[in-house]
Design a protein around this nucleic acid. Structure first.
Length: 436
RNA sequence: GGGGAGUUGCCGGAGCGGUCAAUCGGGCCUGACUGUAAAUCAGGUGGCACUGCCUUCGGAGGUUCGAAUCCUCCACUCCCCA
């Protein structure tokens, strides 16, 4: 038996991780904290990760814990994903500065459906997916207080870092009670699926240990917890958001495959060991070889390319990944306008389909007017400023003056202008047919 | 219930009657150098018909030639006492 108190603080290494199966995860940067774990992973029975359906898609922040599940499944542990149809209606205070608005039931259910499908497609093996609404939904408030609440003291919850940090800014009883719901999930899975391990992001440590505590109180048996680090980049900022601060979603409706691919492709060299370790399904040795090859010629961006391809293929499929990769090569390859114009029709169609495209209705416009009218930019000042700074190119040619008429640039295939904003952002401006 | 402090641009945070579209820092954007990397340096960061004009400093009124700055009311946040 171990002391829970000693395990609650994040970031303090609690003991030596000697088991080889854990060591394999650790060198992939997938381990932040763990309770003492059994030597044989099979003793864990099953492992689960919980995801609350607070949006209609997963984003890449959800991937790391699922990767834990992936590797555990490889080690022979049955993987379970809990879609938190019940808990999403309450709101997890972990890592949140302020109270969250309550989500309507129908919305949560729609989200849960979408996430279930995504999770299923994400892991290459049979996976049990359950919704905690199926057991928490039936619980009456009184029964919950009697059967669950009785076993966890307020002071125990108050000691949690996630609760602590919210005491000043305010936390409702609803969110305060959240850890109990998640604890009960763990208990339920322990009883019904023989699940003894819960995994999650580092921010879930408090909730996980609460579950372990509940299981111990109710059954006298031991359960385990394992968290992966919340990813940060080498410069200390949060990983997983675009430069603009938007999430990178798995749903193509929210983040296009092209943008998804580009996101991975742009990662900094210094972050690659971590990113490949965490996200790639390649064997560790293969990753090391790749990093080695990368370091001899970093300008080739071998590692970024490999990572971007693998992730895009996993999420959006092999053929989309190929297409997006080819498109990126053509668009960023630095080819001249002539080369771009001579691209085969089928590839050109692909390029246009994959990249963001903005439409205008007529050509009798200045560059500035056209870009604003198409919706690509929010204001004319923004475009003018960009031009002034030399950051705007159309059809591979730098725009020198804001008043330049758009038709000073000959459109590709009669209707397309390739717009480059800075060195990374590229999109199409398209002349829409009058009737269309 | 009583007393006090506050609400400014993406964030932090100055400004306390005119010279304020608002110091500064962070973030973000762009350029140079490069490799769609990092670091560094430089510039930019409300809108427009751009040497000018228009709309911004919690909301609504008011005082004044003139307000982010003063007054009144309202809303919200925080702190202290009970």
């Amino acid at each position: 038996m171990y002391s829970l108190a000693g395990l609650q603080r994040k970031g303090c290494p609690t003991f030596a991780l000697v088991q080889p199966w854990i060591e394999a995860l650790r060198r992939r940067y997938l381990v932040q904290d763990a309770t003492p774990l059994p030597e044989n992973p099979k003793a864990l029975g099953a492992a689960y990760v919980g995801i609350d359906p607070t949006a209609d898609s997963l984003h890449i922040g959800h991937l790391a814990p699922l990767q834990l599940l992936y590797h555990l499944a490889q080690a022979g542990i049955q993987p379970i994903a809990v879609v938190g149809g019940a808990t999403a209606r309450i709101g997890d205070p972990s890592g949140k500065r302020s109270e969250r608005p309550l989500l309507p039931l129908e919305l949560v259910q729609a989200h849960a459906k979408a996430l279930t499908a995504q999770i299923q497609n994400l892991l290459p093996f049979e996976l049990t997916i359950v919704d905690n609404l199926s057991w928490l939904g039936a619980f009456s408030f009184l029964d919950f207080l009697r059967e669950v609440g009785k076993h966890i003291t307020v002071s125990y919850l108050l000691a949690k870092e996630t609760i602590q940090s919210r005491l000043e800014s305010g936390i409702s009883f609803t969110e305060f009670a959240y850890p109990l719901l998640q604890a009960y999930d763990f208990y339920y899975l322990f009883q019904h699926y023989g699940c003894r391990l819960q995994v999650g992001g580092a921010d879930q440590w408090g909730n996980i240990t609460t579950g372990i505590e509940l299981i111990r109180k109710l059954t006298g048996q031991e359960a385990y917890g394992l968290t992966c680090p919340l990813l940060t980049r080498a410069d200390g900022t949060k990983f997983g958001k675009s430069e603009r601060g938007e999430n990178i979603w798995l749903s193509p409706a929210r983040t296009s495959p092209y943008q998804f691919y580009q996101f991975w492709f742009r990662q900094a060299d210094a972050d690659l060991p971590k990113l490949l370790g965490v996200f790639s399904w390649k064997p560790f040795e293969e990753i090391e070889a790749l990093l080695q090859a990368h370091s001899t010629a970093p300008e080739k961006r071998l590692a970024q390319r490999s990572l971007a391809y693998e992730m895009t293929a996993r999420i959006h499929g092999e053929s989309v990944a190929q297409s997006v990769e080819r498109v990126s090569e053509v668009i960023f390859g630095g080819g001249t306008l002539e080369e771009l114009a001579q691209v085969p029709e089928s590839l050109f169609a692909q390029i246009v389909a994959e990249m963001p495209t903005y439409c205008i209705a007529q050509v009798q416009l200045s560059v500035v007017e056209a870009l604003v009218a198409s919706g690509a930019f929010r204001s004319k000042s923004e475009v003018r400023q960009l031009i002034q700074q030399g950051g705007l190119s159309i059809n591979r040619q730098r725009v020198e003056a804001a008043e330049t008429p758009l038709n000073a640039y000959v459109p590709l295939r009669g209707a397309y202008w390739l717009v480059q904003r800075g060195k990374r952002e590229r999109f199409w401006l398209r002349l829409a047919e009058a009737g269309a």
